[in-house]
Amino acid sequence: MATPTKAALEARVEQLAAENQRLQSLVDDQANGVVHDWLISADAFATEVPNIHETFSWRVTRPLRDARTVQLKVAEIGLIPTMRIVTARLTRSDRRGRR
């Protein structure tokens, strides 16, 4: 078997470099497409969440969600520590004029 010439090796290196560049371009295109799709979904989600929070059903069920959160916290850390947390949060929200 004959040893390839320097010119043949250089030509092969150029071919491989071109192939590498082509494949890298494909990978970049795929990655950019995925990132673009993700950004579109994230943007849609970011605009949809406030819309959900403004619905009547979301506002009506808020006290139920709050009660369930307190119930789970009592089971986790006990009644007295939970009462302290709830009292602190209610006091803080009263100062801000929010509920």
Rank of each mutant, 00 (worst) to 15 (best):
G78F: 02
L64Q: 09
A11M: 04
L79P: 01
M1I: 13
R68W: 09
L23G: 04
K73A: 11
R98Y: 11
V35Y: 11
R89M: 15
R59K: 15
Q71P: 00
A18E: 10
A75L: 12
L72G: 01
T61Q: 10
A2V: 15
L9S: 07
L9H: 04
E48C: 02
I52Q: 03
L16G: 03
T87A: 13
A75V: 03
I40C: 03
P63S: 05
K6H: 15
F45W: 07
D66V: 06
W58I: 00
I85K: 06
L26Q: 13
D66K: 05
V34C: 01
D29K: 14
R65H: 11
K73Y: 04
A7C: 05
Q71S: 09
P81S: 05
G33R: 02
T91Y: 01
I52W: 07
T5L: 10
A7R: 14
L23Y: 07
L26A: 08
D66T: 06
V74L: 01
E48W: 05
V27G: 01
V49A: 02
L9M: 15
E76H: 06
V86Q: 01
V27W: 07
W38I: 08
R92W: 08
H36I: 00
I77P: 01
R95K: 15
L90H: 08
L39S: 05
L9C: 11
L16K: 07
R95N: 12
R99L: 14
E48L: 11
P63H: 08
A2M: 14
V35H: 08
S93G: 00
D94N: 13
R96S: 14
L16N: 09
D29Q: 13
R89K: 13
T61W: 03
Q15D: 15
S93Q: 15
A7H: 10
S41M: 10
R92C: 03
A11E: 14
V70Y: 01
V49C: 00
R99P: 01
R89E: 15
V86D: 00
I52V: 12
A46Y: 03
Q71I: 05
L9N: 07
S41W: 05
E10F: 09
S93F: 13
V27Q: 08
G97Q: 08
R99V: 09
H53E: 14
